[in-house]
Amino acid sequence: MKLLILGATGPTGRHVVDLAVRSGDSVTAFVRNPATLGDLAERVTPVTGDATSQHDLTAAAVGHDAIVSALGRGSSVRADGLFTRASTAVTGAARKADVPRLVWLSSFGVGHTFGWSSSAQKLIYGTLLRSIYADKAIADESIRSSGLDWTVVYPTRLTNGPAKGTYRADDRLPMKGNPTISRADVAAFLHAAARGGEWIHRTAVISD
Rank of each mutant, 00 (worst) to 15 (best):
V77G: 14
A193I: 04
S26F: 06
H55Y: 03
W104T: 04
L105P: 10
L19K: 00
G115I: 02
D140C: 05
G49F: 06
S182P: 05
G63E: 07
A192T: 14
G197T: 11
T127M: 06
G24E: 08
D98R: 05
I5Q: 10
V103M: 05
I5M: 09
P11M: 11
A51D: 10
I124E: 04
E42W: 03
I143Q: 09
I138K: 12
G126D: 13
T9D: 08
A20F: 10
V16G: 09
A61N: 09
A192P: 07
K2H: 14
L3M: 08
L190M: 12
I143D: 11
N33G: 08
R14K: 07
T88K: 15
A29L: 07
A184D: 11
D98E: 12
T151F: 03
Y125H: 13
A193D: 01
I206R: 06
A70S: 12
D65E: 14
D208H: 09
L6H: 02
T58Y: 04
S118E: 08
G13V: 06
K2T: 14
V103T: 08
W199S: 06
G165N: 12
A86Q: 02
Q54D: 03
D39W: 09
A120L: 13
Y154C: 04
L190I: 13
R130D: 15
A59Y: 05
R183I: 05
A79W: 01
G72T: 06
V17K: 00
A97R: 11
A8Y: 09
A94V: 01
L3P: 06
A169F: 02
H112S: 15
G81T: 01
A35C: 03
H15E: 13
A29H: 01
A29S: 13
S119D: 15
I181Y: 09
G81R: 01
V62N: 04
G24D: 05
L19P: 04
S107G: 13
R85D: 15
K2F: 12
P11L: 10
S69L: 04
D135P: 13
V153W: 01
G161T: 04
D56F: 01
N160Q: 04
V68G: 06
L71G: 02
G81W: 01
A193R: 06
A93D: 10
V17S: 02
L158Y: 03
R95W: 00
L3W: 02
K136M: 15
A169R: 13
R85K: 10
R43W: 02
G177E: 08
G49N: 09
T127W: 05
G111Y: 09
A187V: 06
A8C: 09
L40Y: 14
D185S: 12
T113V: 03
K164E: 12
P155V: 10
S53E: 13
D80K: 02
L57V: 06
R78S: 06
